[in-house]
């Protein structure tokens, strides 16, 4: 089974990064990581290939330096990668991203495409359904489990009060949630070594036959007008002491605010 996983390099927002005075991310303070939600998709791909055999190709649209980040996902066990990179793509919007990834997918052979549920840097979880629509692929999202039989994929699509069982013929595009496979594996030392020699093929917009004026930053469908830090909440009252004292304080506080 040939699986393509869409992975996006994102700034690490788990705590070490800083914002510069201009409120832009100080990139030096945080080397990019694989979008955490996409690691779940890589993990899902690895499980499927372990069960059915096959190969995993990572597909990324990002600046040229993203090969470093892609190697982190290759180290988990993926077999190769395709990086779409072009100076004209700086500032590309979600619509352009979907168009570029769809064009890149059209050059690949695959049975299944897996995506993460959203980019952690502000993505809206919209690229995957856009790509599926452009490629004419059956789209199965919000998967709490993924099962592949000969030529079909079946998922449990989670929703608030349970799940739906969805099925479609391959090739198809599936969006994987964090609970489909649980925590993604850590790269082993062997995996890290192996990742160094995996091939990451680079494609430009010209290679894909796309017009930089139509899909790049110049054609962005949205633009940022301004940035500001979020509002800070009021002062915090800190309570220490015995459990019984603390409980009285909490209940007094809740009572003042009419929750008791």
């Amino acid at each position: 089974m040939r699986i393509v996983v869409l992975v996006k390099p994102v700034p690490d927002t788990t705590g070490t990064e800083r914002l510069g005075d201009d409120l832009r991310l100080d990139r030096a303070s945080s080397p990019p990581i694989v979008n955490p939600n996409d690691e779940y998709a890589v993990e899902q791909a690895l499980r499927l290939v372990e069960a059915h055999g096959g190969e995993i190709t990572l597909l990324t649209m990002a600046p040229a330096g993203a090969t470093e980040t892609m190697r982190k996902a290759l180290a988990m066990g993926a077999h190769g990668g395709v990086l779409v990179s072009d100076d004209a793509l700086a500032g590309a919007c979600a619509l352009s991203t979907a168009r570029v990834l769809a064009a890149a997918l059209a050059t690949l052979e695959f049975d299944l495409v897996l995506c993460g549920i959203a980019s952690s840097d502000g993505g809206g979880g919209v690229v995957a359904s856009g790509v599926a629509t452009l490629c004419g692929l059956p789209y199965l999202s919000y998967a709490g489990s993924v099962e592949v039989t000969d030529d079909r994929v079946r998922i449990h699509r989670l929703h608030a009060t349970g799940y739906m069982v969805l099925e479609a013929p391959l090739p198809a595009l599936v969006v994987v949630t964090q609970i489909a496979v649980g925590e993604p594996r850590y790269a082993s030392l062997k995996g890290i070594m192996a990742a160094r020699s995996r091939v990451i093929r680079s494609l430009s917009l010209a290679d894909l036959g796309l017009d930089p004026a139509a899909v790049g930053g110049a054609a962005a469908s949205t633009r940022v007008l301004g940035v500001r830090p979020p509002a800070v909440r009021g002062a915090t009252r800190v309570v220490r002491g015995s459990a019984a004292d603390a409980a009285r304080e909490i209940v007094d506080f809740l009572d003042e605010r009419r929750f008791i």
Partner: peptide, 13 residues
């Protein structure tokens, strides 16, 4: 955006 670290205001082109 960025996991709530900043707020941006944006418009359509």
């Amino acid at each position: 955006v960025l996991g709530g670290r900043i707020l941006t205001s944006s418009a359509f082109s």
